[in-house]
């Protein structure tokens, strides 16, 4: 019981041997398995994360392209609206020009016509005056025509 001898050394050797054997047969294999399982779980986790990241990337891309499309649409719309505006203005201006021309034409024609009518009226009046004068002269003296008076009148009327 209370003695220290060679058996101490034997026990030390025994314990070291036991430690090595236990490490070899119990701790190492089990730890290896646990590590492998951990690695597998990590791998799966990483894969899932990668997949998630990829999905996120695609979503971002999609959103980006959506935003682009929206912008393009907006741009196109603005362009179209601007074009339409310009067209509208052009058309309106055209119309106005045309209307003005028509009006001017109309005014010019009216003037023309007026002049013609006036000329015609003058001529008629002159004829009427001649007739009237002939009538008057005829009633008073018949063939006795004061030719000087008559010419004078004619001249006057011709000047007009």
């Amino acid at each position: 019981m209370l003695r220290l001898d060679w058996n101490l050394l034997f026990t030390v050797i025994n314990l070291l041997l036991l430690f090595v054997l236990m490490k070899m047969f119990l701790f190492k294999p089990v730890q290896k398995i646990l590590d492998e399982r951990q690695a597998e779980a990590d791998k799966q986790f990483d894969e899932a994360k990668a997949r998630q990241d990829a999905a996120d990337g695609m979503k971002a891309q999609y959103e980006q392209s959506m935003a682009n499309i929206e912008k393009e649409r907006e741009d196109t719309l603005r362009e179209v609206r601007r074009n339409a505006d310009a067209e509208y203005h052009r058309i309106v201006e055209d119309a106005q020009d045309k209307a003005k021309q028509i009006k001017d034409d109309a005014v010019a024609e009216a003037e023309n016509k007026k002049t013609q009518i006036l000329k015609k009226a003058e001529k008629e009046i002159a004829d009427m005056v001649v007739d009237a004068a002939v009538k008057v002269v005829g009633e008073k003296e018949g063939a006795e025509v004061d030719s000087s008076l008559y010419n004078e009148f004619l001249n006057k009327a011709g000047d007009k």
Binding site: M1, D5, N7, L9, T11, L15, L16
Partner: peptide
């Protein structure tokens, strides 16, 4: 019990 032997406990303690 081996632990009833002083050799064993001494060996454990020394280690």
């Amino acid at each position: 019990s081996p632990t009833k032997d002083l050799n064993v406990t001494a060996a454990l303690a020394i280690m």
